[in-house]
Write a protein that binds this DNA or RNA. Sequence first.
DNA 1: GCCTGTTTAGCGATAC
DNA 2: GTATCGCTAAACAGGC
Length: 276
Amino acid sequence: MSKAKRFKVDRLEMYPKDEVQGSGPAPLDDCLTSLNWLQNFSILSADPERPSGPGCPSSQEQLFHESFDTDSPSSPAAGHTAATGMPQYLGSDSTVGPLFSRYPHIQMQPIPLVEVDYKTNPKAKPPHSHSSLIYMAMQASEQPKVTLSTIYKWIKENFCYYRHAEPTWQNSIRHTLSLNKRFKKVPRQKDEPDKGGFWKINPDHSDMCVNRLFRRKKRFQGYQDTASTSSVNEDMSPEQKTLSPTDSRGTTRSPETLLDLGPMATWTCYSLSSQR
DNA sequence: GCCTGTTTAGCGATAC
DNA sequence: GTATCGCTAAACAGGC
Protein backbone atom coordinates (compact mmCIF):
# COMPACT_ATOMS: atom_id res chain seq x y z
CA MET A 1 0.00 0.00 0.00
CA SER A 2 1.29 3.42 -0.85
CA LYS A 3 2.05 5.77 1.95
CA ALA A 4 -0.53 8.22 0.71
CA LYS A 5 -3.20 5.59 0.70
CA ARG A 6 -2.11 4.36 4.05
CA PHE A 7 -2.50 7.77 5.56
CA LYS A 8 -5.95 8.15 4.14
CA VAL A 9 -6.97 4.86 5.57
CA ASP A 10 -5.38 5.80 8.83
CA ARG A 11 -7.55 8.85 9.00
CA LEU A 12 -10.56 6.89 8.01
CA GLU A 13 -10.01 4.58 10.88
CA MET A 14 -9.71 7.47 13.25
CA TYR A 15 -12.83 9.22 12.10
CA PRO A 16 -15.91 7.27 11.40
CA LYS A 17 -17.42 9.61 8.90
CA ASP A 18 -20.83 10.21 10.38
CA GLU A 19 -19.44 10.93 13.76
CA VAL A 20 -17.03 13.41 12.37
CA GLN A 21 -19.69 15.26 10.54
CA GLY A 22 -22.01 15.16 13.46
CA SER A 23 -21.08 15.56 17.07
CA GLY A 24 -17.41 16.25 16.70
CA PRO A 25 -15.48 18.14 19.30
CA ALA A 26 -16.16 21.76 19.94
CA PRO A 27 -14.56 24.39 17.73
CA LEU A 28 -10.96 24.88 18.53
CA ASP A 29 -10.50 28.32 17.16
CA ASP A 30 -10.23 30.25 20.37
CA CYS A 31 -7.96 27.93 22.19
CA LEU A 32 -5.64 27.34 19.31
CA THR A 33 -4.59 30.77 18.30
CA SER A 34 -2.07 31.27 21.02
CA LEU A 35 1.48 30.09 20.99
CA ASN A 36 1.81 30.25 24.73
CA TRP A 37 1.61 26.51 24.98
CA LEU A 38 4.75 26.36 22.95
CA GLN A 39 6.52 29.05 24.81
CA ASN A 40 5.74 27.30 28.05
CA PHE A 41 6.38 23.91 26.53
CA SER A 42 3.13 22.98 28.07
CA ILE A 43 2.74 19.27 27.98
CA LEU A 44 -0.43 17.40 28.35
CA SER A 45 -1.10 15.96 31.69
CA ALA A 46 -3.23 12.94 31.50
CA ASP A 47 -5.63 12.82 34.35
CA PRO A 48 -7.50 9.59 34.70
CA GLU A 49 -9.74 11.22 37.27
CA ARG A 50 -11.01 13.71 34.80
CA PRO A 51 -14.78 13.72 34.82
CA SER A 52 -16.64 12.39 31.87
CA GLY A 53 -20.13 11.63 30.86
CA PRO A 54 -23.17 13.65 29.88
CA GLY A 55 -22.44 17.31 29.86
CA CYS A 56 -18.75 16.81 30.16
CA PRO A 57 -16.39 16.79 27.24
CA SER A 58 -14.78 13.49 26.65
CA SER A 59 -11.41 12.85 28.11
CA GLN A 60 -9.91 13.10 24.71
CA GLU A 61 -11.62 16.34 23.88
CA GLN A 62 -10.83 17.93 27.18
CA LEU A 63 -7.27 16.83 27.09
CA PHE A 64 -6.93 17.98 23.55
CA HIS A 65 -8.29 21.40 24.31
CA GLU A 66 -6.26 21.86 27.42
CA SER A 67 -3.11 20.97 25.63
CA PHE A 68 -3.48 24.18 23.68
CA ASP A 69 -5.27 26.17 26.29
CA THR A 70 -3.27 29.08 27.57
CA ASP A 71 -5.02 28.94 30.89
CA SER A 72 -4.36 25.33 31.50
CA PRO A 73 -1.63 24.41 33.91
CA SER A 74 1.73 24.34 32.34
CA SER A 75 4.16 21.53 32.55
CA PRO A 76 7.66 21.80 33.89
CA ALA A 77 10.11 24.20 32.41
CA ALA A 78 11.55 24.29 28.99
CA GLY A 79 14.05 21.70 28.06
CA HIS A 80 12.51 19.12 30.28
CA THR A 81 9.08 18.33 29.12
CA ALA A 82 8.86 18.91 25.45
CA ALA A 83 9.98 15.38 24.97
CA THR A 84 7.45 13.79 27.25
CA GLY A 85 4.23 15.11 25.92
CA MET A 86 1.37 14.07 23.76
CA PRO A 87 0.31 11.09 25.81
CA GLN A 88 -1.79 8.54 24.12
CA TYR A 89 -4.72 9.24 26.30
CA LEU A 90 -7.11 6.42 25.95
CA GLY A 91 -10.76 6.90 26.42
CA SER A 92 -12.70 4.85 28.86
CA ASP A 93 -15.54 2.78 27.66
CA SER A 94 -17.87 5.55 28.64
CA THR A 95 -16.28 7.92 26.21
CA VAL A 96 -15.20 5.62 23.46
CA GLY A 97 -17.83 2.97 23.59
CA PRO A 98 -20.88 4.94 22.47
CA LEU A 99 -18.99 6.38 19.59
CA PHE A 100 -17.76 3.13 18.19
CA SER A 101 -20.83 1.13 19.02
CA ARG A 102 -22.24 2.58 15.85
CA TYR A 103 -19.32 1.19 13.92
CA PRO A 104 -19.05 -2.46 14.72
CA HIS A 105 -16.33 -2.93 12.18
CA ILE A 106 -14.09 -0.72 14.26
CA GLN A 107 -13.01 -2.43 17.40
CA MET A 108 -11.41 -0.51 20.20
CA GLN A 109 -9.06 -2.50 22.30
CA PRO A 110 -8.62 -1.00 25.72
CA ILE A 111 -5.04 -0.73 26.78
CA PRO A 112 -3.50 1.07 29.71
CA LEU A 113 -2.95 4.76 29.58
CA VAL A 114 0.32 5.48 27.86
CA GLU A 115 2.36 8.61 27.95
CA VAL A 116 4.75 8.85 25.08
CA ASP A 117 8.21 9.68 26.21
CA TYR A 118 9.80 11.25 23.20
CA LYS A 119 13.01 11.63 25.09
CA THR A 120 13.61 7.93 25.33
CA ASN A 121 11.39 6.33 22.74
CA PRO A 122 13.27 6.16 19.44
CA LYS A 123 10.13 5.19 17.58
CA ALA A 124 8.09 8.13 18.73
CA LYS A 125 8.55 10.91 16.27
CA PRO A 126 7.78 14.19 17.98
CA PRO A 127 4.51 15.74 16.86
CA HIS A 128 6.22 19.08 16.39
CA SER A 129 6.96 20.79 13.15
CA HIS A 130 10.58 21.58 12.44
CA SER A 131 9.91 25.25 12.99
CA SER A 132 8.43 24.37 16.36
CA LEU A 133 11.45 22.30 17.23
CA ILE A 134 13.73 25.15 16.28
CA TYR A 135 11.65 27.55 18.27
CA MET A 136 11.74 25.29 21.29
CA ALA A 137 15.47 24.86 21.01
CA MET A 138 15.94 28.58 20.87
CA GLN A 139 13.73 29.13 23.85
CA ALA A 140 15.40 26.38 25.81
CA SER A 141 18.83 27.79 25.21
CA GLU A 142 17.86 30.98 27.01
CA GLN A 143 20.32 32.72 24.74
CA PRO A 144 19.49 35.52 22.33
CA LYS A 145 21.03 33.54 19.53
CA VAL A 146 21.94 29.93 18.98
CA THR A 147 24.07 28.00 16.57
CA LEU A 148 22.83 25.35 14.27
CA SER A 149 24.71 22.74 16.19
CA THR A 150 23.02 23.88 19.37
CA ILE A 151 19.66 23.36 17.74
CA TYR A 152 20.72 19.92 16.57
CA LYS A 153 21.99 19.07 20.00
CA TRP A 154 18.87 20.19 21.80
CA ILE A 155 16.60 18.29 19.46
CA LYS A 156 18.66 15.15 19.77
CA GLU A 157 18.85 15.45 23.52
CA ASN A 158 15.15 15.90 23.92
CA PHE A 159 13.83 13.67 21.18
CA CYS A 160 15.25 10.22 20.98
CA TYR A 161 13.74 9.78 17.56
CA TYR A 162 16.20 12.21 16.07
CA ARG A 163 19.14 10.52 17.71
CA HIS A 164 18.42 7.44 15.68
CA ALA A 165 16.88 8.94 12.57
CA GLU A 166 18.69 9.47 9.33
CA PRO A 167 20.44 12.83 9.33
CA THR A 168 18.16 14.11 6.60
CA TRP A 169 16.14 15.85 9.28
CA GLN A 170 19.10 18.15 9.79
CA ASN A 171 18.82 19.19 6.19
CA SER A 172 15.21 19.99 6.85
CA ILE A 173 16.15 22.02 9.89
CA ARG A 174 18.64 24.03 7.87
CA HIS A 175 16.11 24.43 5.13
CA THR A 176 13.53 25.66 7.63
CA LEU A 177 15.96 28.14 9.13
CA SER A 178 16.90 29.52 5.76
CA LEU A 179 13.45 29.85 4.35
CA ASN A 180 11.33 30.56 7.36
CA LYS A 181 11.06 34.26 8.06
CA ARG A 182 10.40 33.50 11.69
CA PHE A 183 14.10 32.88 12.05
CA LYS A 184 16.87 35.29 11.37
CA LYS A 185 20.50 34.61 10.80
CA VAL A 186 23.05 36.49 12.86
CA PRO A 187 26.52 36.48 11.34
CA ARG A 188 29.26 35.19 13.57
CA GLN A 189 31.90 37.69 14.55
CA LYS A 190 35.45 36.94 13.57
CA ASP A 191 36.55 36.72 17.18
CA GLU A 192 33.89 34.15 17.97
CA PRO A 193 35.01 30.52 17.80
CA ASP A 194 33.35 27.62 16.06
CA LYS A 195 31.86 27.87 12.61
CA GLY A 196 28.62 28.79 11.06
CA GLY A 197 26.43 31.65 12.05
CA PHE A 198 23.90 32.17 14.78
CA TRP A 199 20.18 32.02 14.50
CA LYS A 200 17.55 33.84 16.45
CA ILE A 201 13.82 34.34 16.39
CA ASN A 202 12.99 37.13 14.02
CA PRO A 203 11.09 39.73 16.05
CA ASP A 204 9.75 41.20 12.84
CA HIS A 205 7.89 38.01 12.12
CA SER A 206 7.13 36.75 15.57
CA ASP A 207 3.49 37.42 14.88
CA MET A 208 3.67 34.82 12.18
CA CYS A 209 4.03 32.23 14.85
CA VAL A 210 0.91 33.33 16.62
CA ASN A 211 -1.14 34.01 13.55
CA ARG A 212 -0.17 31.11 11.40
CA LEU A 213 1.23 28.33 13.44
CA PHE A 214 -2.20 27.03 14.20
CA ARG A 215 -3.88 28.07 11.05
CA ARG A 216 -4.52 24.57 10.03
CA LYS A 217 -7.42 23.77 12.22
CA LYS A 218 -10.13 22.84 9.83
CA ARG A 219 -9.46 19.32 10.79
CA PHE A 220 -12.45 17.40 9.64
CA GLN A 221 -12.67 18.59 6.09
CA GLY A 222 -9.69 16.53 5.16
CA TYR A 223 -11.30 13.45 6.49
CA GLN A 224 -14.41 14.00 4.49
CA ASP A 225 -12.35 14.50 1.39
CA THR A 226 -10.54 11.27 1.84
CA ALA A 227 -13.22 9.15 3.41
CA SER A 228 -14.04 7.45 0.19
CA THR A 229 -10.77 5.63 0.30
CA SER A 230 -11.42 2.31 1.88
CA SER A 231 -8.75 -0.22 2.17
CA VAL A 232 -7.13 -1.59 5.22
CA ASN A 233 -3.71 -0.59 6.40
CA GLU A 234 -2.92 -3.82 8.04
CA ASP A 235 0.75 -3.37 7.46
CA MET A 236 1.07 -0.61 9.99
CA SER A 237 2.77 -1.43 13.19
CA PRO A 238 1.10 -0.61 16.49
CA GLU A 239 3.68 2.07 16.94
CA GLN A 240 2.76 3.63 13.66
CA LYS A 241 -0.85 3.64 14.63
CA THR A 242 -0.25 4.79 18.12
CA LEU A 243 2.55 7.27 18.04
CA SER A 244 2.68 10.48 16.17
CA PRO A 245 0.16 10.31 13.39
CA THR A 246 1.99 10.54 10.14
CA ASP A 247 1.15 11.94 6.80
CA SER A 248 1.32 10.31 3.45
CA ARG A 249 5.09 10.32 3.43
CA GLY A 250 5.56 9.26 6.96
CA THR A 251 5.83 12.81 8.13
CA THR A 252 4.72 13.32 11.65
CA ARG A 253 1.78 15.58 12.00
CA SER A 254 2.89 18.60 13.90
CA PRO A 255 0.70 20.08 16.61
CA GLU A 256 -0.84 22.35 14.09
CA THR A 257 -1.44 19.63 11.60
CA LEU A 258 -2.26 17.25 14.35
CA LEU A 259 -5.34 19.34 14.78
CA ASP A 260 -6.33 17.91 11.52
CA LEU A 261 -6.49 14.58 13.17
CA GLY A 262 -8.43 15.84 16.10
CA PRO A 263 -8.65 14.39 19.56
CA MET A 264 -9.20 10.97 18.20
CA ALA A 265 -5.66 11.08 16.95
CA THR A 266 -4.61 10.21 20.45
CA TRP A 267 -6.67 7.10 20.49
CA THR A 268 -4.90 3.94 19.81
CA CYS A 269 -5.07 0.26 19.30
CA TYR A 270 -7.92 0.19 16.91
CA SER A 271 -8.28 -2.61 14.49
CA LEU A 272 -10.45 -3.44 11.61
CA SER A 273 -12.43 -6.57 11.46
CA SER A 274 -12.88 -8.69 8.40
CA GLN A 275 -16.21 -7.01 7.83
CA ARG A 276 -14.38 -4.14 6.23
C1' DG B 1 35.73 15.53 4.01
C1' DC B 2 32.58 17.60 6.93
C1' DC B 3 29.62 21.22 8.27
C1' DT B 4 26.90 25.04 7.20
C1' DG B 5 23.87 27.57 4.40
C1' DT B 6 21.19 28.39 0.18
C1' DT B 7 18.35 27.16 -3.49
C1' DT B 8 15.23 24.47 -6.24
C1' DA B 9 11.73 21.08 -6.92
C1' DG B 10 7.92 18.42 -5.73
C1' DC B 11 4.12 16.66 -2.93
C1' DG B 12 0.21 16.83 0.21
C1' DA B 13 -2.74 19.42 3.06
C1' DT B 14 -5.19 23.46 4.69
C1' DA B 15 -6.69 28.36 4.57
C1' DC B 16 -8.70 31.84 2.11
C1' DG C 1 -8.73 27.88 -7.59
C1' DT C 2 -4.93 29.95 -5.48
C1' DA C 3 -1.85 30.86 -1.74
C1' DT C 4 0.48 29.19 1.96
C1' DC C 5 2.63 25.90 4.84
C1' DG C 6 5.37 21.78 6.18
C1' DC C 7 8.26 18.39 4.73
C1' DT C 8 11.59 15.76 1.98
C1' DA C 9 15.20 15.38 -1.26
C1' DA C 10 18.89 16.92 -3.81
C1' DA C 11 22.43 19.85 -5.57
C1' DC C 12 25.68 23.25 -4.91
C1' DA C 13 28.98 26.53 -2.79
C1' DG C 14 31.91 28.27 0.85
C1' DG C 15 34.54 27.79 5.09
C1' DC C 16 37.25 25.11 8.24
